[in-house]
Design a protein around this nucleic acid. Sequence first.
DNA 1: ATTGTCGAAAGTTTCGAAAATCTGGTTTAC
DNA 2: GTAAACCAGATTTTCGAAACTTTCGACAAT
Lengths: 260, 260
Amino acid sequence: MAKVLPAAPFEGANENLAATTAPQDVSREDAATFDVLRKMREDILCCVLKPDQKLKFGELRQRYDTSVGTLREALSHLVSEGLARTESGRGFQVSPISLADFLDLSELRVYLETKTLADAIRHGTDAWEAEIVSSYFLLSKLGAPKQDDPLSVKQEWGKRHKRYHDALVATCRSPWSLHYRSELFDQARRYHWLTMIHSRLHRRNEHLEIRDAVLARDSDLACSLLEQHIRTTVEQAVADVPGLIRGNARVLKPGKRRKS
Amino acid sequence: MAKVLPAAPFEGANENLAATTAPQDVSREDAATFDVLRKMREDILCCVLKPDQKLKFGELRQRYDTSVGTLREALSHLVSEGLARTESGRGFQVSPISLADFLDLSELRVYLETKTLADAIRHGTDAWEAEIVSSYFLLSKLGAPKQDDPLSVKQEWGKRHKRYHDALVATCRSPWSLHYRSELFDQARRYHWLTMIHSRLHRRNEHLEIRDAVLARDSDLACSLLEQHIRTTVEQAVADVPGLIRGNARVLKPGKRRKS
DNA sequence: ATTGTCGAAAGTTTCGAAAATCTGGTTTAC
DNA sequence: GTAAACCAGATTTTCGAAACTTTCGACAAT
């Protein structure tokens, strides 16, 4: 009988660096389609395209200056990522948001982020530490954006925030975990955006605390802090974002209007 | 200060049944594009389209009798799911497979499937139990396919196998967990297929054991059995599939040939 | 023998127009 | 008065051809 593998966590699961099969992180491609995809994703994440909004080809074609086919391909991608939905025959729309979804999302994030972070710490390298220090520096230099900061500042902060969190887990050996973690992080960004717009609450410097725990290779503390970090954000959103609790948030503008 | 949510696992995360935002399970759509997508996914999962194979539009157009645009959209979906890859300017290809990937995949599956199953058991209903009984019955009626069973039998078994495993976790309250679980399950199907082709090993009736543990609502036992189920499959593949261990498996046919 | 350049062939990407489908308002039948 | 049938306008879906990129082999130069 083959007793090649022990019952405990697979030996070699983390040793083997060979070719990974996990889904591509589409962002590094540079064809026209991917440009449109990138822009559109960013617009959804920043609620420029609002939750539940109908995505009409006419408007989009104008906005992104491209053809129907290209749009269709990009939209198709967004559906797979969960940022848009489609029903055959009646086009596309931005995915709705809801408290239930945010809670679900966040719980799974805690589950995955901690696993990923623990593994990253276990396999950390000098370069990894350097990128954490560097990305934290860039993040802290900007400071948490306030309600009336211009859009561009908020977007820049969003980028640096993601870069920092990506850096933390970069040395995790599981491509699949990394991939799903990243998708969930993006999903959460939509909710963070709402929080950023509405909240003025003060928070401790959680990113600093996490950074130091990680650099000290204190896995338990780091995971615990990261967990709190995620949970606090949920609390903050629940407390500060009006409309998120009762039914779908319609935070920006009413989604429908009707003629007189 | 808002103390709306406790620090422990979110209250209400599992209570709230409201609109979910998790990615659509694309399978229930019925437009032409989705037909092509379904067929193509099935072909990749069953290694009719082999790992690493170049996916040329000319051939595909003929095989699925459709236009380039439609194909492109379907392929785009498959890339998001991790079943295909693309590099700008040089088309699409079926994702490679490797031992490292299978190990990674399986480890994450254990992590997610057990969490999902535990939650499903916690919220099980009569209808849930009924579907488990029914889908198990259909699965057992077919028996594990052997090396020289015809393709159609293997495919039918694949369908019933998936239906059974889906049934187990159907009442899990976390749409996101369910979605990722399902994607990972499909990924694993590619490897199962190889095992099915090459192996004659006998296995205990693990599906029956799991079914009974689940119906008895013995969460710990059920999760443990499910974990073993996944791990045993890995062992079997490592033992029986030639070529999986050393580098990428090229199990079906050489991918390249050259003229004299 | 190796390297470099050019051009033809194969393949991919993008586009806009034709066909199919949906939406909402108006008419018609009961 | 209600509901079914119908029509026109708007929108989505599908398609094949034009534009562009990459690949490959032949030929010339080193």
